[in-house]
């Protein structure tokens, strides 16, 4: 009974909003640019049925995955190296602290000029913005490892190889995942902006098209698709994280967020 009440309250606000939106939308009391839910779902269905949505999703997904993969792995690699080796750290720390405060999207014109308007410039800017949060998380994860673990492993005769894969990586993993999550969020923001500002394809373009044609149901459908894409990616990442960090997550409050 208690649980039912909680679930009821949980659903109350979203359901009320959607129902009001639908009712007032149908009555015409809502300005046309807000459309209404059933119309949006119909548009989404229509887009999905004629394959346009699928094409746009594939394009956007390819860009965000490639960019995220390149930027995040570079960030992890260089970040771990910077955490472990002083020379690397001294080289990258000033550069990162210099560039970290700059919104990476400001470099979009530069990427567009250097790599053209197609996929490479989108992948480039996504990778570029994923690199920084990932670098900081990875670098910090190494420097915050409990030195006793490292000393203990060394004492027991662990080789550098063993030390890296059995001590340092597992100890750094939670923070690396935190960095991955931030990078993923950045990837979607930047991808959206890049596709909206300069692109001939992808979900961002679909949204801009819907807007230009005053087909607000289409615009909302594409927005919905984009939101679902971002949400599902985050869920997948969190599922992987829960699998990898089985032990580290026991008894933490983060379960609420995940």
């Amino acid at each position: 009974m208690k649980l039912r009440l909680t679930v009821f309250q949980n659903l109350l606000v979203p359901v009320v909003v959607v129902v009001c939106w639908e009712v007032f939308g149908r009555l015409g009391d809502v300005p046309p640019y807000l459309s209404y839910p059933s119309q949006i779902l119909a548009a989404l269905w229509h887009l999905a049925a004629d394959g346009e949505l699928f094409g746009a999703v594939v394009v956007s997904l390819y860009r965000v995955t490639a960019g995220f993969a390149i930027g995040a792995s570079a960030g992890v690699g260089v970040g771990l190296a910077a955490g472990l080796v002083r020379g690397v750290r001294n080289f990258f720390d000033p550069l990162v602290s210099l560039l970290f405060a700059v919104p990476k999207i400001a470099f979009l014109p530069v990427f567009l000029i250097l790599l053209g308007i197609g996929d490479p410039s989108k992948i480039g800017i996504v990778a570029f913005s994923c690199f920084f949060p990932m670098f900081i998380a990875a670098r910090h994860s190494v420097s915050s490892i409990n030195k006793l673990f490292v000393w203990a492993a060394q004492n027991m005769g662990a080789s550098r190889h063993t030390l890296f894969f059995r001590v340092i990586i597992p100890a750094a993993a939670p923070e690396i995942f935190a960095g991955l999550r931030i990078s993923l969020a950045h990837a979607f923001i930047v991808l959206f902006a890049a596709e909206l500002i300069g692109s001939h394809s992808g979900l961002g373009m679909l949204i801009a098209d819907g807007e230009d044609a005053a087909r607000f149901d289409l615009m909302f459908a594409a927005i919905l698709a984009f939101a679902i894409l971002g949400f599902v990616s985050d869920r997948i990442l969190m599922a992987v994280r829960a699998r990898v960090l089985r032990g580290a997550m026991l008894g933490t409050e983060e379960k609420i967020l995940a």
């Binding site: 640019y33 807000l34 969020a185 979607f188 923001i189 959206f192 902006a193 949204i207 801009a208 807007e211 615009m219 909302f220 927005i223 984009f226 939101a227 971002g230 949400f231 990616s233 985050d234 869920r235």
Partner: peptide
């Protein structure tokens, strides 16, 4: 986790 930037046109 929803990329809210998508709502900017609205």
């Amino acid at each position: 986790p929803v990329p809210k930037i998508a709502l900017f046109p609205i």
